[in-house]
Simulated assay, not measured.
Amino acid sequence: MAGEILDNQGRGEASWSWPAIHPEGRKYGVIAVLISLIPLIVLDWEIIGWPMLLLSAGVFAFFRDPERVIPQADDAIVAPADGLVTLIRQVEPPTELQVDDGSGSPGLAAGPVTRISIFMSVFDVHINRAPIAGTIRRVVYVPGKFVNADLDKASEENERQHILIERPDGLAIGFTQIAGLVARRIVPFVKPGDMVAKGQRIGLIRFGSRVDVYLPAGTEPKVLMGQKIVAGETILAERGTGALLEGIAQ
């Protein structure tokens, strides 16, 4: 299915399949299985071994990497992460995405923009994807704390990694991978200068965390507080458009 074009008129073929396990997680799954076999086979402690083997399956599931169908409309900004929309705020972009870093990329302009925060639980897919196509201009790692990623202050206090993508027409989107209480490593798949397609895999965070997205000025979200969204598929916003959207939890 990868690379196949599908549309809303019925073109393409779709069928369910088991998601692949990302290479980054295979070693952890194998290690978990081997550890669980010690009490199960060597020590004959089934009451401990079987739950540990079940936990091993959970490790593999955490690193699952399903295929996604990426909307190709030029103005569409897609979600970089699976998870729950927990915060929508008007904020200044992070300093690391604004200041002149000497690379020739001007960064994001100063002034309030809309930040969408996506919380990823341990049950969500943790592969992050590019919200737009373009060139990676910045990848800035910032050490920090590991407080609850669901809190607003996590944007400024937690360990995090800022990424800036710029399209040929000058549109730039910044987003931030934020470690949480359990997460202890942010793994990038890209570096400055790389060209990425919209929805391309750009990194992951282990194990439960958050991603903040900074929309261009004058662009409002097309998602709601409390909405579950899907990386690479859910349209977060459309450039230059905005209107009040309301939903009812039920």
Rank of each mutant, 00 (worst) to 15 (best):
R138K: 10
G199F: 10
V140G: 01
P93D: 05
P106W: 02
D65R: 10
E166C: 03
A130Q: 13
L171G: 01
H126P: 14
A183L: 05
G58M: 11
S105M: 05
Q90M: 07
I88E: 07
I178H: 00
V59Q: 06
Y141L: 12
E96I: 11
I136L: 14
A81D: 05
D100S: 05
R185N: 11
Q72M: 15
G111N: 12
A109K: 13
F146V: 06
I77F: 00
K198W: 14
R160G: 10
R64D: 09
D65K: 10
I118L: 02
E156F: 13
T114A: 03
G111V: 11
A130G: 08
M120W: 06
Q161P: 04
A130W: 15
A154H: 03
R167E: 12
I178N: 00
G104R: 12
K145A: 11
D124A: 03
G83A: 10
A81C: 07
D124V: 04
D100N: 09
V196G: 07
F60Q: 07
L151E: 11
L164P: 12
A183P: 01
R138F: 09
A76S: 12
S117N: 07
K153N: 10
P168S: 03
M120P: 07
S103L: 09
K191Q: 15
H126E: 09
G111H: 07
A57H: 01
T86W: 05
I88A: 04
F119G: 01
I178D: 00
P112N: 13
F146G: 02
R185M: 10
G107I: 00
R137L: 09
I132K: 06
A130L: 14
P71K: 09
V147S: 07
G144T: 12
G144N: 09
K145T: 12
F123M: 08
V187I: 14
P131C: 04
D194Y: 04
G144D: 09
I70V: 14
P143Q: 15
V125P: 09
L97Y: 02
G170I: 00
R115I: 03
Q98F: 01
D65W: 15
